[in-house]
Structure formats: C-alpha cells, structure tokens
Amino acid sequence: MSDDSPSEPRTFARDALETVAIVAAVGAVLFAVSGVWPPMVAIESGSMQPTLERGDLVVVTAEGRYGGPAADDYGVVTANESEGYGRLGGPGDVVVYDAPSHPTPIIHRAVFWVEDGENWYDRANESYASGADSCAELLNCPAPHAGYVTRGDNNDYYDQAQGIASPVRPDWVRAKGQFHVPHLGALRLEAQKLF
C-alpha cells in the first residue's frame, strides 16, 4: 500500500468544498438570471388554485425583468392592462409582496393600479368587492395611497377589500412569478416545519 493516497479526512474535505462550490455557483447563476434572492418561493396556501397549488415551487424574478408589453414604470403588468400578456395561467403578473399587516409574503395577481385617494370601487369587479355597494362600504376606498389592487386567483375578494393589505406599494413588491414546478415546493415547506 502506498503512502501517496489521500487520507479520508482530506478526501471528505475536498468533496465538501466541491459541493459547496457547485451550490454557490448554481446560486450565483440563479441570482444573476432572476435578480432576486431567493429565486424561488414555495406556495403555502390554496389562494392561487387552480393556477398554483399548495406545495408548488414558483421561480421568481425582480419585477423589472422580463416584463410584458404593457409593463408599468415598476415593471409590473396588471391583469386589467395585460393586452393578451399573462403569467402563471392568467392575465398580467403574479407578484410576491410584503404587506406590513401580514406576517409572511403574499403571492397574488396584480389586478389594477389605483392612485392615492382614488375611488376605485367604480373600476372594481363587484364580485370581488366583498359585498360593498359603494366606496364608502369598501375597505381601503378611497385608496389611502397609490398601489396595486391584488387578488388570489381562488379568492372571491380583492386583498384590499378584506383588509389583507392596503393597495400594494411598488416598494412592497419583492418579485414576480415567471413559471412554476408542481409539488417541488413541498420539500421546502416540510423542511420549514423542522426548523
């Protein structure tokens, strides 16, 4: 037996460093392409069914990347302005946003933009206005500030009409969804339970 063979600890260390280097390289490429970290999110609820199911993994990008033909100044295409453009099974963009009133990020479709003080009841679909008959009966109407009115594809209400969030300010938007991989996010959700 020759003494030139690497020892087990050195081999393990080399293999571990190679693995870390590969993971770091993949992460760097994903970040370069997406412009956000993390570049994927796991769906935690059924609010976007049937488009996105609980446990699906959504690949996301910075809101200004890969916009559609009617993207606004912030790189988001709303469903009402989509002109045939759509992502994730519906018109317009699906955005990931942080609402100050909500403990976790929300991933819902941007439906339309409202200006500060706007009576947006007249532009809202009555089906999603939570039974309101006027702006005075609708939460967040008139709009307390400019932002997006959003809705989960499976929800029969706007997020703003239920008080989930006020109109989503552009600086609350963390990313927008590009495509999804069914069931792959379930691994991440299970891992979250362990930690």
Rank of each mutant, 00 (worst) to 15 (best):
I106D: 05
H108P: 13
H108A: 12
H108G: 14
R109H: 07
R109G: 05
R109Q: 04
A110I: 06
A110V: 06
A110C: 05
W113L: 11
W113K: 14
W113E: 13
V114D: 02
E115F: 14
D116F: 05
D116K: 06
G117S: 10
G117W: 02
G117P: 07
E118S: 12
N119E: 08
N119A: 10
W120F: 09
W120C: 04
W120T: 02
Y121C: 08
Y121H: 07
Y121N: 03
Y121W: 08
Y121E: 06
D122G: 07
R123A: 09
R123I: 03
A124H: 15
A124R: 11
N125T: 12
N125R: 08
E126K: 15
E126G: 15
E126H: 15
E126M: 11
E126A: 14
E126S: 15
S127T: 11
Y128F: 15
Y128I: 14
A129N: 07
S130L: 04
S130C: 08
G131S: 14
G131A: 14
G131Q: 14
A132W: 10
A132E: 08
D133P: 04
D133R: 03
D133E: 10
S134Y: 10
C135W: 10
C135R: 10
A136N: 12
A136G: 14
E137P: 09
E137T: 06
L138Y: 05
N140A: 14
N140W: 03
C141F: 06
P142S: 04
P142H: 01
P142A: 01
P142E: 00
A143C: 11
A143R: 00
P144T: 00
P144L: 00
H145W: 00
A146P: 09
A146W: 00
G147W: 00
Y148F: 07
Y148N: 04
V149M: 10
V149K: 13
T150P: 13
T150H: 09
G152Y: 05
G152F: 06
D153C: 12
N154Y: 09
N154W: 11
N154P: 04
N154G: 09
N154S: 10
N155L: 13
N155S: 13
D156K: 15
D156C: 14
Y157R: 06
Y157D: 02
Y157P: 00
Y157T: 04
Y158R: 08
Y158L: 08
D159I: 00
D159N: 02
D159R: 01
Q160D: 11
A161G: 06
A161M: 10
A161D: 09
Q162P: 14
G163C: 09
G163D: 03
I164H: 02
A165I: 03
A165S: 13
P167Q: 07
P167C: 07
V168I: 04
V168M: 01
R169T: 13
R169G: 11
R169H: 11
P170I: 07
P170R: 07
D171Q: 02
W172Q: 12
W172R: 08
W172S: 11
W172F: 04
V173D: 05
V173Y: 00
V173F: 01
V173L: 01
V173H: 03
R174T: 11
R174M: 11
R174E: 10
R174Y: 09
A175K: 00
A175L: 01
G177K: 01
G177R: 02
Q178I: 11
Q178S: 05
F179V: 02
F179L: 02
F179K: 02
P182V: 05
